[in-house]
Simulated assay, not measured.
Amino acid sequence: MTDGKWQKGQLIKRYKRFLADVVTADGDTLTLHCPNTGSMRHCIVEGSDCWYSRSDSKTRKYPHTWEVATTPTGHLAGINTARANGLVRAALEAGVIEPLAGYPQIRAEVRYGSENSRIDFLLSGETGNCYVEVKNVTLMEAAGEGLFPDAVSTRGSKHLRELMATVQAGHRAVLLFCVQHTGVEWVSPADAIDPAYGQNLREAAAAGVEILAYRARIEPEHSRILLSEALPVRL
Rank of each mutant, 00 (worst) to 15 (best):
G4F: 11
Y15T: 00
F18R: 00
A20K: 01
V22L: 12
T24L: 02
D26I: 03
D28P: 00
L30E: 05
L32V: 08
L32M: 10
N36M: 00
T37F: 08
S39F: 06
C43Q: 04
G47E: 12
R54L: 14
S57E: 15
K61M: 11
K61D: 10
Y62V: 08
P63K: 09
E67K: 15
T71P: 14
R89N: 07
A90M: 03
L92R: 11
E93K: 06
G95S: 08
E98C: 13
A101Q: 02
A108E: 05
N116T: 09
R118P: 07
F121M: 07
S124H: 08
T127K: 14
G128C: 08
V132L: 00
E133N: 08
E133R: 03
V134A: 04
N136R: 14
N136G: 09
M140R: 05
A142S: 15
A143K: 06
G146C: 10
L147I: 10
F148N: 10
D150R: 11
D150P: 07
D150H: 03
T154N: 13
H159V: 13
L163A: 06
L163H: 03
M164E: 12
T166A: 09
A169L: 08
G170M: 09
R172P: 00
F177P: 00
F177H: 15
A196L: 13
Q199D: 15
L201N: 01
E203I: 08
E203P: 05
A205R: 14
L212I: 07
E219C: 01
S223E: 11
L227Q: 02
L227F: 03
A230D: 05
A230I: 01
